[in-house]
């Protein structure tokens, strides 16, 4: 296995783990954590791609940008979680399923 392959496999593993978390968790905080795991997978993939195409600096700068953007998303996600807890009194996703049909 080449370095690229190893890194891509681990990237996909991280994303898969995050996705799995999203499928099974019922807790909003854990949802945000699962999202973070997914993003980390994407970061690994970007850096690996940069290295594989001999543009490590490019890959790293992409990763930096993603980290910044992702932080914003995570912050908003957590802010939503705080607000949900305040308004609903619980972080359970099943309490957040009133819009259906």
């Amino acid at each position: 296995m080449s370095t690229l392959e190893i890194m891509l496999v681990s990237a996909f593993a991280l994303v898969g783990a995050g996705l799995y978390g999203l499928l099974i968790t019922r807790n909003l905080i854990k949802v945000v954590i699962a999202l973070q795991i997914m993003v980390k997978g994407a970061l690994v993939a970007l850096v690996a791609a940069g290295q594989a195409s001999d543009q490590l600096a490019l890959g790293q700068s992409l990763a930096m940008t993603v980290i910044v953007a992702d932080t914003v998303v995570a912050v908003i996600g957590l802010a939503f979680a705080v607000q949900v807890k305040r308004v609903r009194g619980t972080l359970d996703l099943r309490a957040l399923a009133e819009l259906r049909g």
């Binding site: 690229l4 891509l8 990237a11 996909f12 994303v15 995050g18 996705l19 999203l22 999202l35 997914m38 993003v39 997978g41 994407a42 993939a45 970007l46 690996a48 791609a49 940069g50 594989a52 195409s53 543009q55 490019l58 890959g59 992409l62 993603v66 998303v73 996600g77």
Partner: peptide, 16 residues
Amino acid sequence: AVGSVLVLLGIALVLA
């Protein structure tokens, strides 16, 4: 956010 991560993976593959 899930969609956005999948896009990033796609971008990484294209770059590689």
